[in-house]
Design a binder for these strands. Structure first.
Length: 645
RNA sequence: GCCGUUGUAGCUCAGUGGUAGAGCACUUCCUUGGUAAGGAAGAGGUCGUGAGUUCAAUUCUCAUCAACGGCUCCA
């Protein structure tokens, strides 16, 4: 007999070799029908795998993350079985569970799979699932495994086997499909009730663009149809919040083939938002001791040789223009220009921290396949600033920048983000990162300390640093789930040396400053793209392109409405009037769809009483106010940058 | 850049080897209407661009550009 301990602390005795599924059955049949896998002493196991010693056991169901990923991983095997039937000779690389679903990377050996095949594959998967085939685990020696895949001619699994230890290798078989796999898997395919293959894409083998491109099929499955339907509905809803859709509907921005890919044309409504953001940034930076500068969009080659951009990031820059035998580049970053401003006059320790801010325009040659609405573009406007400070001042300055982030996030109600400490990858020193191993470690520790002091939760990720130093990135997710860096706060120990920047310290010695690059509001492009999705187009009043729309019931009230408009304009409110010969219901509908925060319905009653009827977007009729009451309310809401909720 | 899909009116989309349609938007007229679509008429497209096949191409082929879903990349 062995002792099984449950999460609630209970300990029960079972026969040696009992399975998690047996245990579930001993508790209740209902539970047994839900068990997908089990956590045994912290490892996730098949629910059907015998337990031969005392163990802490947690039964895993659909409600557990590990239960879900087991379910999805097993679904990937089911899909592979269907693919193998439809595309004989297909070879399989890896098929993991992902955040929402699973994929499998497949070499179809010259056969072509199109989106039309997905329905077919789904049908096959459903048939196979209904056969209730069990997932059978089998230990196998490395020799036998190699033999099996050699005969199959599957170089991908052979490649995987190379890195596996003999005695540690398992095969899983369900129905007619056998795969090299460490598991675990759900008991049988019958658990998979609802299947949707969501996409087909190319994916480089081992993620390396020099390798062959495999076919990746994405899918998601559920234990019942209802959850699949809900998931699909959620995707539909997310698409409605997509900034590309809202940006068009609300007249925020447009793009044009004659201008170029990734080059944004900001329309009047979008420009209003830009200007409000800049106003906020300028106020905030002025108060925090920043000085504003303006620099050109281009510079000569030598500048970027000095900065290190050309050696490390030439691929991401537009190719140079030749003028009078000189090469000029569009700037990909503002920093080198700012360094030259720093260096234009000698600096003493009394000048530090020296903070230069600019909403700088940068051009980056992003690969065509990477462009994405406002989130990834080739011309961007950065909320940029560079802080030149001494080593002693660094921690305080870096923390002040972090505090500025948090202040902004509060204004915008940004709560769903992850702070990421982005470090260098020692293996890529000299290629992707400047070759200063000790400086890297030293500054990374400085940044880590600041984060710990601030008390903001963060994750550390190797290989995400800038080429000149470590950084803190704020990661957010777009409506359709893609991850982006919204804001960034970086340390730079390379460029001060490259540019021979210096200041005279208290001892009359020349010292090299540290530089902090920071962009708490990221770029206009990405930030406004984010805000569109964050607010689902319903901007708070201070950001709304049109803050108030006057809706006269009929033409008879145009003169009074015009008077009103003048008063609101004089109060600095962005107001428009819908003078069309339409019914009030239609005017309201359109103002609602354009997410205008306040609608003023003006008719006989309002004109006679000298008042106005207020309607709040999304909330409906708010009743009658005097003009002064309304103006004061709106002006106050704007001044305080209220979130509107 | 790579794999795949798509490109028809301002928007959303239908359609065809014999030079195109719907709804909404737009314009005009009627209506002057009280909190999410009043009615009628009209205007609007060389079917992304270029080349090829054909008597004939928006439709078939190729190239190119762009967008979309991924991969790679992301200072």
């Amino acid at each position: 007999m062995i002792n099984i301990s449950f999460p609630d602390g209970a300990v029960r005795q079972y026969e040696n070799g009992v399975t998690a599924l047996d245990i579930a059955k001993s508790i209740s049949e209902g539970l047994a029908r839900k068990v997908l896998a089990a956590s045994v002493n912290g490892d996730v196991w098949d629910a059907t795998r015998p337990i031969n010693q005392d163990a802490n056991l947690k039964l895993l169901t659909w409600d557990d993350t590990d239960g879900k990923s087991t379910f999805w991983h097993s679904s990937a095997h089911l899909m592979a079985e269907a693919v193998e039937q439809k595309f004989p000779g297909a070879k399989f690389w890896v098929g993991p569970a992902i955040d929402k679903g699973f994929y499998y990377d497949i070499d179809l050996g010259g056969q072509q799979m199109t989106e039309d095949d997905l329905l077919d594959l789904e049908k096959k998967m459903n048939e196979l699932a209904r056969q209730n085939n069990t997932y059978i685990r089998k230990d196998i020696s490395k020799n036998d495994a190699v033999k099996y895949f050699s005969e199959k001619g599957d170089e991908y699994k052979l490649d995987l086997l190379q890195n596996l230890q003999d005695g540690n290798i398992t095969f899983y078989t369900q129905g007619g499909f056998t795969d090299l796999c460490r598991g675990p898997h759900i008991p049988n395919t019958g658990f998979i009730k609802a299947i949707k293959l969501t996409g087909i894409a190319g994916a480089y083998w081992k993620g390396d663009e020099k390798n062959k491109m495999l076919t990746r099929v994405y899918g998601v499955t559920f234990p019942n149809q209802k959850e699949l339907d809900e998931y699909l509905l959620m995707l539909e809803e997310a698409k409605k919040r997509d900034h590309r859709k809202l940006g068009k509907e609300l007249g925020i921005y447009t793009m044009n083939d004659d201008i170029g890919a990734g080059l944004i044309l900001w329309m009047p409504n979008g420009t209003v938002i830009i200007e409000e953001l800049e106003k906020l940034a300028k106020e905030t930076e002025l108060a925090a001791g920043y000085k504003r500068v303006v620099t050109p969009h281009i510079a000569k080659e030598n500048l970027y040789l000095t900065s290190g951009h050309l050696p490390y990031y030439a691929d991401s820059m537009f190719p140079p223009m030749e003028m009078d035998g000189e090469k000029y580049y569009l700037k990909a970053m503002n920093c080198p220009h700012h360094h030259k401003i720093y260096d234009a006059e000698p600096k003493s320790y009394r000048d530090l921290p020296y903070r230069l801010a600019e909403y700088g325009t940068c051009y980056r040659y992003e690969q065509s396949g990477e462009l994405f609405g406002l989130m990834r573009v080739r011309c961007l406007h950065m909320n940029d600033a560079h802080i030149y400070c001494s080593k002693e001042q660094f921690a305080q300055e870096f923390k002040a920048v972090n505090d500025m982030y948090l202040k902004y996030f509060k204004i915008f109600g940004i709560e769903k983000y992850v702070m990421r400490l982005s470090l260098h990858d020692p293996e890529k020193l000299g290629q992707k990162y400047i070759n200063e191993p000790e400086l890297w470690l030293e500054t990374e520790q400085l940044v880590r300390n600041v984060l710990i002091e601030t008390g903001v939760p963060f994750v550390e990720v190797k290989g995400e640093g800038a080429f000149y130093g470590p950084k803190i990135d704020v990661q957010i997710w777009s409506a359709i789930g893609r991850e982006f860096t919204l804001a960034t706060n970086q340390v730079d120990f390379a460029q001060p040396r490259n540019f021979k920047l210096s200041f005279t310290n208290q001892n009359n010695e020349s010292e090299i400053p540290l530089i902090i690059h920071r962009a708490p509001l990221g770029t206009h492009e990405r930030f406004i793209g984010f805000l569109l999705e964050h607010y689902a187009g319903k901007f708070p009043v201070w950001l709304a392109p049109v803050q108030v729309k006057i809706l006269p019931i009929s033409e008879k009230f145009a003169p009074y409405s015009n008077e009103l408009r003048s008063k609101l304009l004089a109060a600095g409110i962005r107001v428009e009037m819908d003078e069309r010969n339409e019914k009030i219901g239609k005017k309201i509908r359109e103002a609602e769809l354009h997410r205008v925060p306040y609608m003023l319905v003006i008719g006989e009653k309002e004109m006679n009483e000298g008042k106005l009827s207020v309607r709040r977007q999304g909330k409906g009729d708010m009743g009658v106010q005097t003009t002064d009451e309304f103006i004061n309310m709106v002006v106050d809401e704007i001044a305080q940058r209220k979130s509107g909720e």
